[in-house]
Simulated scan of single mutants.
Amino acid sequence: MTTLTPPAAGTPHLTRWLIRLHRPALLFWTAVVVTVSGVLLWLGGPLADASAAAWRAYNACRTATCAYDQAAILHYKDVYTYTTYAVLAAPFLVAAWAGAALTGREVETGTARLAWTQSTSPLRWFASRLALPAAVVTAGTGLLVLLHHLAWSAGKGRIDSLKSWYDLPTFYANGPVVVALALAGLVAGALAGLLRRGSLPALVAGLGFTGLLWYGVQLAIPHLWTTSTAVVGLRRFAPAGGGLGVDEGIVTATGAHVSNPTCANSENVECLAFYDKFDAVGWYRDYHPASHYWPLQLTATALVLALTALLTLLAFRLLHRETGLRKGRSA
């Protein structure tokens, strides 16, 4: 296998070298963004119009034999699901590539060390590996999130089967937290490439970190903003509190809240015994209404970006320490 000679020092040279080295990945990312963007525009335009017309015809039905375009409704639903998960896959694609190719392959083949000794410093080399990909990832993922949000908004009040804002895949695909997760995946993958010294281990490590971070975000988001609370009497229906649910349970005679998401104001034997045990007088539900969407999204995005900055600082410090030790030993 032929080893490409690193370019001379200088930011323009490093940028051209990076584009040349990772041109297939750049073309693939561009193709993914353009394709998904086109489908999202189709989803929010002709598909949304066709599905809305079908729902109007369905709701106007007064007989069992009236006609409506069921295929348009199902087609919209399927395309919406596929594009939503395509947007959510972006952080994992970025993390896998960053670990396997951005740094892992160059460290594994020795190209990185050659560049450090002949053309540029390790810290400058790593900075060049992050700056341009970060811009490309932010632009591409940000465009997908924007178009997904517009496509979803085009169906509000028109398509009865449209996912609610708090449906978890929709919640994430509609907001900037996905962009922050993609940047975190980029840095995590690049850091894994430095530490694991192999493409495949770094790929797995980058994917694993991104998955764990996303899981942590899902656990944390409901608690990043003060919830609203709905309360009803015990023998009435449980409070609707339409939105992102956080907790629910009974209200005792003293006004205390005791969590119990399983009974939901049911009157079976087990639930009646539970109500009597705690002297229940009502039922409560803590939730986030639609007005909390952007506070939750922006707070989660800020936290993920802060973690990404810490990972970046850690990567630079580790690289500086490692290369500094090697220089000391060689001296």
Rank of each mutant, 00 (worst) to 15 (best):
G233I: 07
L234G: 03
L244M: 14
I221A: 05
V232P: 02
F237E: 15
G216R: 03
L219A: 10
R235E: 10
T226Y: 13
P222K: 01
L213T: 02
F237I: 07
L219R: 11
L212K: 00
V232R: 07
V246D: 11
V251Q: 05
T254N: 10
T229L: 12
D247P: 04
E248V: 00
A240G: 15
H223K: 07
T227R: 09
V217M: 10
E248N: 03
A253Y: 05
G245D: 14
R235I: 00
G245P: 10
G243R: 00
G255M: 09
V231S: 03
D247T: 00
T252H: 05
T227E: 15
I250N: 01
L234Y: 01
V251K: 01
Q218V: 09
R236Y: 09
L244N: 02
V217N: 01
T226D: 12
V232S: 14
L234E: 09
V217A: 07
G242M: 13
P239W: 09
G216D: 07
V231R: 10
T254S: 14
V246E: 13
L224S: 01
G255V: 06
Q218W: 13
Q218I: 12
H223S: 04
F237T: 13
I221E: 14
V246L: 14
A220E: 12
G241Y: 15
T254K: 09
A253F: 06
T252Y: 04
G255T: 02
A238Y: 04
G255H: 04
G243W: 14
Q218P: 01
R236V: 08
T254Q: 12
S228P: 05
R235Y: 10
